[in-house]
Design a protein around this nucleic acid. Sequence first.
DNA 1: AATGGAGGCAACCGCCGGAGC
DNA 2: GGCTCCGGCGGTTGCCTCCAT
Length: 292
Amino acid sequence: MVKAPGSEKPSLRKGSWAPEEDRKLIAYIRRYGIWNWSEMPKYAGLLRCGKSCRLRWMNYLRPDIRRGNFTQEEDETIIKLHEQLGNRWSAIASRLPRRTDNEIKNHWHTRLSKKRLTKNNQQQVPSVIESLQETQTAAIFGFDEANKQNQNPPEILLADPLPIVPNNSPKPPKVLTGCTSPSPQLSTDNCSSSTSYVSANYEEIYTIQISEVNNYDHPSENLDELHNFWEQPFTVDTLCMTMAEGYGQEATHTDPGFVVSTPLWEYQQDYQFPSASSASSYDADDDLWVCF
DNA sequence: AATGGAGGCAACCGCCGGAGC
DNA sequence: GGCTCCGGCGGTTGCCTCCAT
């Protein structure tokens, strides 16, 4: 039996992700959201399995991930939670804002388990851990009154950064109602030194080229619309599609219906939202800033 | 400067549970 | 109830970098 030309499945790539692949994945998710991991690679022009894409996004490319060294408070929290929960890394990660289970797991195996072993051998119990067991850990999980600027936002502000398309949708939707990747001027405070090209080239990766988007084999895409979207510079205005845009209208961040979800806000903390004129408000239920 | 070992971490693998049919 | 698909999770692997020799 002879296979028809082109009928064979292309072999899937494995191993480290190239910057090009990262850009494609980010561009696609920013455009269409997450609708089906197993189908997504095909449309995004990636020779990767869906699981690989999901892992890459969840553990590395998501804009709301904090990277870099763990603080002592985080270490102590992990140790404490590990005592309570065991190896349930996802449960532990859910208590540590912006840290992934994979990162915590690696950190545990490479640093904390040894550290803990050493301490146990010395028959010592860290006093800080004891105090943590007795007191509320709000200072770790939310704002610290004494040092607000260096703390993570409250957990409630860290909603999923991207619109989720219902799984039963056979094709990506034409229009999204939100787009919340970070601005290019990311803080490098939390980036690890040089462990990965992504840390060093984070900004570059978020600069998506129009040609890459054009390569999407997407049946329902309007390329002109795509051109317009990607030709715009990265600004607060253009990073956020608006409800008005959903109906084919132009809009800016001051227009009624302008919506920005908090992950973007998180990266734009020096941005003056129009709330100063009481024309907008934060909707905690939907995790959005809305203009009126 | 070359090399080998150790550590760190991104990514893979296999399993499991839930949803849909 | 059984099957399939998909997403999530934890264990593990293997590559890369750093550092001591």
